[in-house]
Design a protein around this nucleic acid. Structure first.
Length: 190
DNA sequence: AGAAGGATTCTCT
DNA sequence: GAGAATCCTTCTT
């Protein structure tokens, strides 16, 4: 499988967001196909970087192709992939995925008892939990072998776009911006 | 030092 | 659909 190079991430977050759909998140035996993402772009009033560099969002300002993971609502880990040039704050949030392999490990990490359904992996906290991620994985490079990796795969079509979720604090323009991207026909979408 | 709020999820009804 | 869980980050005093 082809590891995506760092150059893949060194572009505008919205461009990366579109190209991210269909790629494979890989950690050991667990493989997830990305089905839904949101772009948080440079100068974005919805972005964690809107108030400048802080201890929490520092990974977003670093080199592209690395992980930015943060704790939301005190309990959910959120996985972002850092984009754009080194030194500017931008990233793409992974919101949903489809199970490709590693079912046993994912079920265990998610403490899933019900019959298999898209709810297993639709939602950013669920994806991160399925991959066993937490903030100690911050700055982890996804373009190198080892730990969490991102692999190229055929791009599903068509895609659907819409406004992002849970950003009421952003400017009206940014709230409406269609920077959420998903596989149009997948059931593995929130 | 204290307070507010958050890129959510789960379990009910 | 509503409410609880839960704690870090950030902003204010």
């Amino acid at each position: 499988m082809a590891l995506l190079p760092q150059a893949f991430y060194r572009r505008d977050a919205l461009t990366v967001a579109h190209d991210l759909i269909g790629t494979l998140l890989v950690r050991d035996e667990v493989v997830l196909r990305v089905t839904e993402v949101e772009a948080y772009r440079v100068g974005d009033t919805a972005s964690h970087c809107r108030a400048g560099k802080t201890a929490r969002n520092a990974p977003m300002w670093g080199p592209p192709g690395r992980a930015y993971i943060y704790l939301c609502y005190g309990l959910h880990q959120m996985l972002n992939l850092v984009t754009d040039e080194d030194g500017v704050g931008a990233a793409v949030l992974v919101r949903a995925a489809e199970l490709v392999s590693g079912e046993a490990t994912v079920l265990e990490r998610r403490r899933w008892t019900r019959p298999l359904s898209p709810a297993l992996l639709t939602g950013p906290g669920r994806v991160a939990q399925a991959l066993g991620l937490d903030t100690t994985m911050n700055d982890h490079p996804l373009y190198r072998r080892g730990g969490l990796e991102l692999h190229a795969a055929p791009a599903p079509r068509p895609l659907a776009v819409g406004p992002r979720i849970g950003i009421d604090y952003a400017s009206p323009e940014d709230r409406q911006a269609p920077w959420r991207v998903a596989v149009a026909e997948s059931r593995w979408v929130a």
